[in-house]
């Protein structure tokens, strides 16, 4: 065996070890990002989730103005804390549209009464169809959609107060 050949196992070992070490330093991110970012919102039309608020269709997101599209549910625990942040954004003039996943009107209105209602429109996604079409993998998630109806960014997990300036700036740039 030549000397070079003998070193191959050691080189392979170093390669494997560095891969494993990398994973230890940077633990796996279990979030699965949507591949729909930088693509137009897929066609959809959702019935109103509440009697007193309009439903949501893809066309409602391409109005010339940027939107926040919030995927949420009344049964989702972190969504409750996100309500305040979305309301804060709304006070800054942001349009927040909601998609309520697997929800009932009663539970939804109780949830909004409890946590505040930042939404201009709420579509009822009773079988997660639109959620899946958007490439969203859980609740809550928030998509930034520009005026032409193109998804520009995805936030996985609840927005917090620290996100507010960033989101505002992003929307400002899209205006």
């Amino acid at each position: 065996m030549s000397r070079g050949l003998r070193l191959i196992p050691i080189i392979l070992l170093l390669f494997v070890l560095s891969g494993l070490a990398w994973r230890l330093i940077k633990p796996a991110d279990t979030a699965v990002p949507s591949q729909m970012v930088e693509r137009p919102v897929p066609q959809f039309m959702l019935a109103a989730a509440l009697a007193d608020k309009p439903g949501l269709a893809a066309a409602d997101l391409a109005t010339g103005q940027p939107h926040l599209l919030n995927i949420f549910a009344s049964w989702c625990v972190p969504c409750a804390s996100e309500g305040k942040v979305l309301q804060e954004l709304r006070r800054h003039g942001v349009t927040v549209d909601g998609i309520a996943v697997r929800d009932t009107p009663d539970a939804l209105s109780a949830f909004l009464a409890r946590n505040g209602d930042p939404y201009a429109r709420i579509g009822a996604d009773r079988q997660s169809d639109v959620q899946i079409a958007l490439g969203s993998s859980g609740v809550p998630e928030t998509f930034v959609v520009d005026g032409r109806g193109v998804i520009r960014r995805q936030y996985i997990g609840p927005l917090s107060n620290s996100n507010v300036p960033g989101v505002l700036q992003e929307l400002e740039q899209l205006r």
Binding site: A73, S74, W75, C76, V77, V101, R102, D103, T104, A107, R126, Q127
Partner: peptide
Amino acid sequence: LSADSNLPPA
């Protein structure tokens, strides 16, 4: 059990 929705399976 906590994170189940209120709707039956599709």
